[in-house]
Write a protein that binds this DNA or RNA. Structure first.
Lengths: 141, 141
DNA sequence: CTAAACCCTGTAGTATGGTACGGGCTGTAT
DNA sequence: ATACAGCCCGTACCATACTACAGGGTTTAG
């Protein structure tokens, strides 16, 4: 134990982030996590914060962001040369995306809550509140 | 013009919901929208509320719900025989999912806002607030 | 020292969610 | 009445995001 610097094998990162080892390598090929240093044997050595990065990827994916979009999100600060105005623009755009998603979730939640209330009141559930709550909203592509 | 009942062709629904005609038929095959009545010619005749249903599908997809999950969401009220307690259970479960997603979005938004603030202050952007804001969160699978 | 568990590269296969024909009727506007 | 957009079905193909080998070297616990 020469260096006590925290470094993890691919398998450990994968277990901590709850994804597969193959997926780790896939993300590396896709440029979502950078190619880590290697031991003499060729084994990857990850810094421990990689786990957070992978968890982030996992969560963002669950929110409907594509790997391409996630890459963009992660690279917002990555390039140190990038003009601040540029970063700002892109970040603001992402915030808009997020606000739209949040709003849709809020409406879905409201609809489901209504459904639950109807069920508790033991009244017949004939109409679909999920649809009803969304029906008036126009989409802005 | 015998019947003034609002009914739309597949193409009209598709245009209104901003998806492709092929996708409409795909969703029908997958059971996400029910097989509508047909004219003598075989042409599908959709009631106008189908547009809302399709828009809902589109939005839910953008939030990371799979078609299977969306089908579940849409069928919560669909089966009138379903026990209320059962519907309630499933709805509550979905609300949990939604709350988790909302929370992640909230944190992402906060991180991006911070990033924007840093850019406005024209300070160097060295750290990645997106990751930082998520790093302390443990995942609950 | 050796066996089990891990890691390596490369390639191939899978699931999901569409998208694009081909070949052929139908509706409608001029 | 005819052209041309729109619809029908069936099948094939596509991108994305994994997932699973095959064939081989490496670590590490006992």
């Amino acid at each position: 134990m020469e260096t006590k610097i925290e470094s993890l094998t691919i398998g450990k990162v994968a277990r901590l982030a709850e994804i597969g080892v193959e997926t780790m390598r896939f993300y590396e090929r896709e440029g979502l996590i950078e190619s880590p240093p290697r031991r003499a044997s060729g084994y990857r050595q990850y810094p421990s914060d990689t786990v957070d990065r992978v968890r982030f990827i996992k969560r963002a994916k669950a929110l409907g962001f594509s790997l391409r979009e996630i890459k963009e999100l992660l690279s917002l600060r990555a390039a140190p040369r990038t003009k601040c105005t540029d970063i700002r623009q892109r970040a603001l755009r992402k915030i808009q995306d997020i606000d739209e998603k949040t709003d849709t979730l809020r409406r879905m939640r409201k609809a489901l809550t209504k459904l639950v209330a109807e069920c508790e009141g033991s009244r017949p559930v004939t109409e679909c509140p999920i649809l009803a709550s969304l029906s008036t909203q126009k989409e802005k592509p």
